[in-house]
Amino acid sequence: MNKAALNIVAVLLALLFAFPLLWMFLTSLKPDGVNVYTLGDWVNWSDLNADNYVKVVRDSQILRWTWNSLVIGVLTTVISILFSSLAAFSFSKLPFRTRGIFYVLIVSGLLIPTEAILIPLYETALHLDLIDNIWAIILPGLTNPIGILLLKQFMDGVPKDYIEAAQIDGSPYFRLWWSICLPLTRSAMVSVGIFFFILSWNNFLWPYLAITSEENMILSAGLPTFLSNNTMSLNLIMTASAIAAIPTIIVFILLQRHIVQGVAMSGVKG
């Protein structure tokens, strides 16, 4: 295939991929009951207005859900990264005999997805009185071992000399981690962190079960309540989706390079 044809194919495919999102935004701006169906509807921009957005924000708790998603995402990511980094440091730099046992135990976390332990997880959360609490989402979010695997690889790359030199100076382990390993793996931490944040932001099944009151919901689990809510018209559902999608899209545009890199890293290694 020659270059010009390939370019055309690529652009057509990109348009096809962009179509659902463009359609969502257009519909979200159309008055109730107006469908974007024919080509004429696409180019008729005279009836576009932001009333739907006002209505969705006023009648639902969508802004609150966005805030909850943000808080949960940031807390999960930051705590995960710190805990993973500490564990990775131990596995990478501290020689200890039971290392293998602990490593296998932790890596086994990759084998069984949350979906397979839903029922006992719910029971555990119930016992700990965590149901309908944001910590019910954050705490299980801290069990993903992928961060340890990835950060360990990067810590393995920290030269032994640095560690040994610091040890001769009598630095305690914590200082080795804090002032040598942590700064040297900063870029890996950013990539892994972004990956964790996306996972948390898009987490659906568990928050859908663990959160029962509307005010504690996160975006992904809160959106489906629009379906059961009969007062919401179909265009308003698109508006709600658009509101949920906008922060993600903005963050994606700003951090694109890191996101793609983080996802590639976690995926290839995972």
């Binding site: 710190l82 805990f83 993973s84 500490l86 564990a87 440091f89 131990s90 596995f91 501290l94 020689p95 200890f96 005999r97 039971t98 290392r99 602990f102 135990l105 932790i106 976390g109 069984i112 332990i117 029922i119 006992p120 997880l121 029971e123 555990t124 700990l128 705490l139 299980p140 801290l142 069990t143 071992p145 340890i148 382990y173 981690w177």
Partner: peptide, 28 residues
């Protein structure tokens, strides 16, 4: 002592991991 010191750094991860992963698997 060396073992314990190294394991200490695993504890922050191991606590939520045990409660919200290992325990539910067994409990299930």
């Amino acid at each position: 002592l060396k073992e314990l010191k190294a394991i200490l750094y695993l504890i922050p991860f191991l606590v939520p991991f045990s409660v919200f992963y290992l325990w539910p698997v067994l409990r299930g």
